Amino acid sequence: MKAPTPFSLCCVLLLSLPLVIVFTITNPTVIPIFTSTRNNSNKPPTKILVPIRNNKKNYDTKHKPAISTPPPPLPEDDESLFRLAARVNPKPWPTGAPKKLAFMFLTTRSLPFAPLWEIFFNQTNPKTKKLFNIYIHADPSYHYDPPFSGIFAGRVIHSKPTQRFTPTLISAARRLLAHALLDDPSNAMFTLLSDSCVPLHSFNFTYNTLIRSKKSFIEILSNEPGAYGRYVSRGEDIMLPEVPFQEFRTGSQFFVLTRRHAKLITKDKRLWSKFKLPCVEWDTCYPEENYFPTLVGMLDRRGCVPATLTHVNWTDRSDGHPRTYEASEVEPGLIFSLRRHRPRYGDDGSGSGNITESIISKRHDPFLFARKFSPESLQSLLRIAKEVIFRD
Results as ranks from 00 to 15, higher is better:
residue 169 L to S: 11
residue 163 Q to S: 13
residue 75 P to V: 10
residue 174 R to Y: 04
residue 101 L to V: 12
residue 158 H to A: 13
residue 146 P to K: 04
residue 133 N to K: 07
residue 108 T to H: 10
residue 152 F to W: 07
residue 86 A to Y: 14
residue 118 E to T: 13
residue 105 F to D: 01
residue 94 P to K: 11
residue 82 F to M: 10
residue 142 Y to R: 08
residue 171 S to Y: 03
residue 119 I to A: 01
residue 79 E to N: 14
residue 106 L to Q: 11
residue 103 F to R: 01
residue 177 L to Q: 09
residue 84 L to S: 04
residue 143 H to S: 15
residue 107 T to L: 02
residue 109 R to A: 12
residue 139 D to H: 04
residue 159 S to L: 00
residue 89 N to S: 14
residue 95 T to M: 12
residue 133 N to G: 14
residue 129 K to T: 08
residue 76 E to T: 14
residue 138 A to I: 02
residue 95 T to D: 12
residue 133 N to V: 01
residue 84 L to I: 05
residue 180 A to K: 03
residue 73 P to G: 11
residue 143 H to V: 12
residue 129 K to W: 02
residue 123 Q to I: 15
residue 77 D to R: 13
residue 105 F to Y: 13
residue 159 S to G: 00
residue 132 F to N: 02
residue 82 F to D: 06
residue 135 Y to P: 03
residue 167 P to Q: 08
residue 154 G to N: 15
residue 146 P to G: 07
residue 98 P to C: 11
residue 107 T to K: 00
residue 146 P to V: 02
residue 154 G to A: 14
residue 83 R to T: 08
residue 95 T to P: 07
residue 156 V to G: 00
residue 169 L to D: 06
residue 148 F to H: 11
residue 159 S to I: 00
residue 163 Q to A: 13
residue 108 T to Q: 06
residue 155 R to M: 11
residue 143 H to Q: 15
residue 154 G to T: 14
residue 131 L to F: 04
residue 127 K to V: 14
residue 140 P to D: 01
residue 144 Y to D: 01
residue 98 P to H: 09
residue 144 Y to M: 00
residue 160 K to N: 05
residue 178 A to R: 05
residue 75 P to L: 08
residue 123 Q to P: 09
residue 81 L to C: 11
residue 112 P to V: 06
residue 84 L to H: 04
residue 84 L to V: 05
residue 168 T to M: 02
residue 117 W to Y: 05
residue 110 S to H: 06
residue 158 H to S: 13
residue 96 G to E: 09
residue 133 N to S: 12
residue 129 K to C: 07
residue 99 K to L: 13
residue 109 R to D: 10
residue 169 L to V: 14
residue 143 H to K: 15
residue 86 A to N: 13
residue 135 Y to C: 03
residue 112 P to I: 06
residue 117 W to R: 00
residue 90 P to S: 09
residue 178 A to Y: 08
residue 87 R to L: 15
residue 83 R to L: 09
residue 85 A to Y: 04
residue 94 P to D: 06
residue 168 T to K: 02
residue 116 L to P: 03
residue 111 L to D: 02
residue 85 A to F: 07
residue 157 I to P: 01
residue 86 A to K: 14
residue 81 L to G: 06
residue 139 D to N: 09
residue 112 P to R: 04
residue 82 F to Y: 14
residue 100 K to V: 05
residue 172 A to P: 00
residue 110 S to N: 09
residue 92 P to K: 05
residue 130 K to S: 10
residue 147 P to I: 09
residue 170 I to H: 02
residue 78 D to V: 06
residue 117 W to C: 00
residue 162 T to G: 01
residue 139 D to W: 02
residue 114 A to T: 08
residue 134 I to F: 00
residue 148 F to C: 03
residue 103 F to D: 01
residue 150 G to Q: 12
residue 89 N to G: 07
residue 139 D to V: 03
residue 88 V to P: 08
residue 78 D to I: 07
residue 157 I to Q: 00
residue 89 N to H: 13
residue 150 G to H: 15
residue 106 L to W: 02
residue 176 L to A: 08
residue 123 Q to A: 15
residue 116 L to V: 05
residue 145 D to I: 07
residue 102 A to V: 08
residue 130 K to F: 04
residue 78 D to P: 04
residue 179 H to L: 04
residue 74 L to K: 07
residue 120 F to M: 03
residue 101 L to I: 13
residue 175 R to M: 07
residue 134 I to L: 09
residue 162 T to R: 01
residue 168 T to E: 03
residue 82 F to A: 04
residue 90 P to F: 03
residue 156 V to M: 01
residue 149 S to K: 14
residue 154 G to E: 12
residue 90 P to N: 09
residue 119 I to V: 06
residue 125 N to C: 11
